[in-house]
Design a protein around this nucleic acid. Structure first.
Lengths: 242, 242
DNA sequence: ACTTAAATTTCGACTTGTCTAAACATTTTA
DNA sequence: TAAAATGTTTAGACAAGTCGAAATTTAAGT
């Protein structure tokens, strides 16, 4: 998978503070942010390489560059952490990504599992104004179609308590707020079950021998889901809006 | 103006026939198409270089590449012409550009003169499906906000007869359908005059000594425009919808 | 602690797109 | 039509991002 396309630049123009990172740099930042969220430790070269489908050698080079730009902290062999600035830039990218995902599903009616790749390209479009207007056009959504929170323009997140169906009590009701597994097969499976963020879920029974669950969606008829599925669906017991 | 950003590829996936040209290649094709429309002759290296803000040497290299890919006809020192395939690809890019321009003005309420640069980035997003759905979402528009026709998915154009205000008869009425000059200062000037595609224009008088015109817009009060302005506004005498 | 295993970095090297300077073609024009 | 001007191509070089192989560092195991 070699790099083939080249853009004509981070334009001269525009944003007050932190624009003008290359497509590739942005992808590294985003990846480091994701990886940082999954554990407290510094992010390893290999982990980044794996996520990006590149090689460790390549990552080392880019890491040095990002470090020079003060977007990450880096000591040889010690892995990396985002700086405050790096964090801000990374969240801005995530914000764009999730806003575009909302656009793709709500306005263009793409299915849940088709939007990620397109949003992956759209997120790099480089215009503060565009994002601001898109946000407004979409009605300032707080969560993306997968239930992940959309940071506001300052990078602040709406945090809601989220547990999985596995943690629910029998007869308890909750609102689905997202998924843990974001892969296409899983999303398609949920699509089929009509199990999407915002739906009301009541846990009717949990079977002892394999942990599978019987639930009712939006007060509808009984639906059977495996233990694995149940443990990958995030819900909020309280009444936060999705 | 050096190349800084690199995309991660024309993905493996998707479109039946002609996808997977680099950002840069697409820009060359689009430029060659534009230049081709302005005259019958083959397009010169220098003309391309000027439009793209690069140097002739650079253009020669890219031209060889495009020629190898059979997107253009090329004989040394003779300039280039698009092949049938190249033409198709180029129109597809123009289509995407103009659809995004409609989106930016109609949905995000960008002003006339702000949209070009953003559309310039959006046009390279690489998904047939996205364009198809965007087109539908926008109601299958036939013209962009500047009045330029949007080719359909087969590359067919809505052609309407277009002349300038200078060609109109006194007391004749016409619909504004577009502009010749697409530069920001001119567009802002028209914005100020409330002179945009779709408006009804009646030519009241044309002054002999400098060719300036007095018109009425949408049956409103008299507006004075210079000869230069008049000659850059396209109108359709017949009743085609814009 | 010492040796092996695993992860990381360095070292060329390649590709895309770019540039400058020099060589070469085509036009113009005198 | 030959000389000058203009336009185009070649050649060599460079930045960005990538890779494989070799060297280096850290971590693990006994």
């Amino acid at each position: 998978m070699a790099a083939i396309n080249t853009r004509t630049s981070p334009k001269k123009e525009s944003t007050i503070v932190d624009a003008g990172h290359s497509f590739t740099e942005e992808n590294y930042l985003k990846t480091i942010l994701k990886l940082s969220e999954q554990s407290e430790d510094a992010v390893s070269t290999n982990a980044i390489a794996f996520r990006l489908g590149t090689k460790a050698a390549t990552v080392t080079d880019m890491i040095r560059k990002l470090s020079q730009k003060k977007l990450i902290h880096y000591k040889k062999y010690q892995g990396v952490r985002l700086t405050a600035r790096g964090t801000k830039v990374a969240w801005a990218i995530v914000r764009r990504h999730r806003l575009w995902e909302v656009f793709l599903t709500e306005k263009l009616h793409f299915k849940w599992d088709e939007i990620h790749n397109i949003a992956e390209e759209l997120e790099h479009i480089n215009s503060e104004e565009l994002v601001k207007r898109l946000d407004k056009f979409l009605g300032f959504p707080k969560f993306d179609p997968h239930g992940d929170p959309i940071p506001d323009s300052k990078g602040r997140l709406s945090r809601i308590s989220r547990t999985t169906i596995k943690e629910m009590q029998i007869k308890q009701t909750a609102i689905m707020t997202g998924v843990i597994d974001h892969t296409s097969p899983f999303l398609r499976h949920l699509e089929m079950l009509k199990l999407t963020p915002g739906k009301e879920i009541k846990l009717l029974r949990m079977l002892d021998f394999d942990g599978s669950c019987i639930i009712s969606i939006n007060r509808g008829e009984e639906t059977y889901i495996s233990s694995l599925v149940a443990s990958n669906i995030l819900v909020s017991i309280r009444n936060e809006k999705v």
